[in-house]
Design a protein around this nucleic acid. Sequence first.
DNA 1: CTTGCACAAATTGTTAACAATATGAGCAGT
DNA 2: ACTGCTCATATTGTTAACAATTTGTGCAAG
Lengths: 246, 246
Amino acid sequence: MAVAANRKTRVVGGKVAADRVKASESPETAIYNKIHRAIAERRLLPGSRLIEDQLAEVFGVSRMRIRWVLQSLARDKVVTLHRNRGACVAEPTVKEAKEVFAARRLIEGALAREVVRATDDKALKRLKAHIKKEVASEKSHDRAMELRTSHEFHTLLAEIVGNSVVVDFLRELMARSALITAIFERPDISVCSHFTHSRLIELIEKRDEQGLVDAMLGHLDEIESYLTLYEKEDQPVDIKTIFSGL
Amino acid sequence: MAVAANRKTRVVGGKVAADRVKASESPETAIYNKIHRAIAERRLLPGSRLIEDQLAEVFGVSRMRIRWVLQSLARDKVVTLHRNRGACVAEPTVKEAKEVFAARRLIEGALAREVVRATDDKALKRLKAHIKKEVASEKSHDRAMELRTSHEFHTLLAEIVGNSVVVDFLRELMARSALITAIFERPDISVCSHFTHSRLIELIEKRDEQGLVDAMLGHLDEIESYLTLYEKEDQPVDIKTIFSGL
DNA sequence: CTTGCACAAATTGTTAACAATATGAGCAGT
DNA sequence: ACTGCTCATATTGTTAACAATTTGTGCAAG
């Protein structure tokens, strides 16, 4: 995430301030997260314009702050910026969605091998603890939280391998996946992913490297198959036929 | 790259303007590239302070522009930003360098398989044409250009696979590699990489998937071995001993 | 010789006003 | 109806002045 997150923990009279849990967030990151979440949860629909003045007023900050945040969101492909025409919530194309999933297969597939090598008892505990979180999320029937928790599992695998460069890539891919899922999700299917994730953990425990790789790739295929990723066939008929006639 | 690069090609009286080759660069990207290049070519050494006013004057733009560019450079890990204390040229640690190369092995190793599948005649031509560029760069004895061209080869492989998400990741990794190489390069060795790259192309031509993967991993190990990546052992002796004494 | 303090200088962070640009409505001409 | 035009409006882009912060220096006290 481009927005710096390094405001010091605020201490008041010897006691940590009330917003301690969010203490590591600069105002910029806080706004970044709010907008990002609003988009991922589809309260802000793809294509919606994001007007600086409005956001500035809503969040009670100056326009430059908003500008800054929008830049960050744009770099993470969550909004698109048009010179002199402002920002819109990104509208990922089908092509883009497929590329993101292809990239995930590439990276997470390769990562799977490393995970087997890197997982120790402590890591296993973290993984199993995370499954509990996923179960709780699914029970709550809060789709947004479900998705977040589920994505965190994938980032967690990268964290276990311990390469922060890869972790950053994974985070970025998860953020984009969240947006893509929000947009292309089929309303008729609801994935029960904690089960699949448990299966992955079993394979890690068994040190079944190839099995884990295959299961991971299968898992990603499964997720992708739950989306409606077909190109829209609305040909630009009128103009095209005219031009092909020439 | 976070800085938008989308100024329209300027047309003057029916003829494309003289700066056509750079027409796609906004003033921000131009400055971004200049600073980035100065760092990669070690004209700006790691740790050097980058003072907004100075840069603004040098490039003849306002401070806000510089601020914007510094933000982009920071996100690409080429400079580090300290709240209220300005920007410095990044000083990649040995740990960071190793992580970047580990990430490269992960991604480029996995990419190698895809490359074999994705390479057609046209792609082969591009690859071979690029080797010529590398040869020319090496002849010129311009170390900076040599490095650039060499890195472009790796990005080119990603381009051939055709996944723009992966291409972006690779570009980022190459930029960081360039900086890392610039900093940790051993002055006594000069890599003659076009030969190794030619070997990779041969393997692609032979459709030797596993061979290519192995060769690529070996290549990356080789590059890394040409750097002086040992942790500096200058223990914080004084303080540490005092504390361990307690 | 070190520590602590106050103050000055350099630098970054923020704001509000202004300039430039794009968008859409209205309206005339065909 | 459709095109082309002008102008008002909304919105973004830029600037310059101001506020806040950090850093370094000098000086006095221990």
